[in-house]
Amino acid sequence: MIEVNITVNGEARTAEVPPETTLLTLLRDWGLTGTKLGCDEGDCGACTVLLDGMSVNGCLVLAGRANGCSVSTVEGLSVDGRLHPLQEAFEQHASLQCGFCGPGILMSAKELLDANPSASKSEIRIALSGNLCRCTGYVKIIDAVAEAGAKMAAHGGQSNG
């Protein structure tokens, strides 16, 4: 067993886990089930979370590797009940049909917009190339990310408010 200390969505958490535990498994064991397991080999992006601000596939990161890091998941996107501009835009554009790929896509999009809220559609496509969606199709998703970015840019990059 190894001990891991991870700050998840601003909250310090600690656990004793078998070394082969992935970050995805640990997060879900902590009850943060918004992050999904889709393929368990880094292809679908349903398990995307931010590790120290960088998007990673939770299924390809060992919990031990995340020790001492800060992790953001979809559950941390809205603050005090106020939706993140991405969540608002995804709702308005009907970008989440079955919704299973959504949490991962939102986190990939967050990494992009945090660095570059004015990202172009082609930059958005590159940023989301590791996230597969099978129901909605990508048009509504890309439109929503672009709109959320514009909103964030108008608020000086601030996401909530």
């Binding site: 992006g45 990673v56 390809l60 990161v61 990939s108 590159i126 590791g130």
Partner: peptide, 9 residues
């Protein structure tokens, strides 16, 4: 190589 998530790690 891969996608953003794999390139980051």
């Amino acid at each position: 190589v891969g996608a953003v998530q794999t390139r980051n790690m």
